[in-house]
């Protein structure tokens, strides 16, 4: 199985870093660090240097907060996408949005991938991806509306629910014209899930990989890591990287991350352990 993002084609053993670039003043982790245009551009330059394969540009934080309408969301991301497209012609540009209207605008500006982080909340979004030949990430949210925290959600079997929802969304997207090799699935840790759900989704990630759709995981500094290790935001990197390594080993292909250099190292290490990547330099015992 291969998959395509932008002009690039990837094998099933690819392990790609998707660097988070927030165009928000209030995201949970960076607290507006790249709200300013210049800072956001510096962030893109940095993550490219650090080995990011994809940038994921988002104009609305995932958590509840001040309502951001489509016009404001576009003001935050569209021109920025155009700048990235011009400055980094080969970089894969993803935009984190659930709105078809925003998706259309960013695709016109050069986006390669629409990261539908709220699980098909806007049913028109796949058609936009299809129209522009863009890729699409389908996510599992357990049915909660955008920017809603999980509350007392239970599943008979969380992984069954994730798999059924994601396969259904992926097939629907394909039916609407999105190229089958441009569709990814994301179990969406923390979204519509308590910590036990996210841990089980990680433990049984292989069942999602077995669907044949390439799997994206978004783990970076999330609450399930924090609750598992009893660590606040800012102290979750080790747990994030451990989860990254396990997910990589189980077959995930794309890793959405704040800390790009560290994630890149973990993925390279896993790839070499798996026999998919040669070590950088080998001398020990061979002199």
């Amino acid at each position: 199985m291969t998959f395509r993002l932008g002009r690039a084609v990837f094998d099933s053993d690819a392990r790609l870093v998707m660097a988070i670039v927030n165009r928000t003043p209030d995201s949970f982790y960076d607290k507006g660090a790249t709200w300013d245009d210049a800072a956001a551009k510096d962030r893109v330059r940095l993550v490219v240097d650090q080995g990011a394969d994809i940038v994921d540009i988002g104009g609305i934080k995932a958590a509840p907060g001040v309502e951001i309408d489509a016009e404001e969301e576009k003001r935050r991301v569209v021109d920025f996408v155009a700048w990235v497209r011009g400055a980094f012609p080969d970089l894969i540009i993803s935009v984190d949005t659930w709105r078809a209207e925003v998706g259309r605008a960013v695709c016109e500006a050069g986006a390669d991938l629409l990261n539908d982080a709220w699980g098909g909340a806007d049913p028109e979004l796949p058609a936009v991806a299809a129209e522009f030949g863009a890729a699409l990430v389908c996510t599992h949210t357990g049915g909660v509306p955008p920017r809603t925290r999980p509350f007392r959600i239970e599943y008979d079997d969380v992984v069954d629910d994730i798999r059924e929802s994601l396969v259904e969304q992926a097939e629907r997207a394909a039916a609407l014209g999105v190229a089958r090799d441009r569709i990814l699935i994301d179990p969406a840790h923390d979204f519509g899930k308590n910590t036990y759900h996210s841990l089980e989704a990680t433990r049984r990630l292989g069942e999602l990989v077995a669907t044949g759709w390439p799997v994206l995981v978004s783990l970076s500094n999330k609450d399930f890591v924090g609750e598992t290790l009893d660590k606040p935001v800012g102290e979750r990197l080790t747990g994030t990287l451990a989860t990254t390594a396990v997910s990589a080993w189980l077959g995930a292909n794309v890793f959405r991350a704040h800390e790009v250099a560290e994630t890149r190292q973990v993925l390279d290490m896993v790839s070499s352990i798996a026999g998919h990547r040669r070590p950088a330099r080998t001398v020990r015992g061979l002199q």
Partner: peptide, 16 residues
């Protein structure tokens, strides 16, 4: 005669 010269032991950088 060092084994580092053998392609099967080379890394991305071919140290030998």
């Amino acid at each position: 005669g060092l084994p580092m010269q053998l392609p099967e032991y080379a890394g991305q950088a071919d140290a030998g």
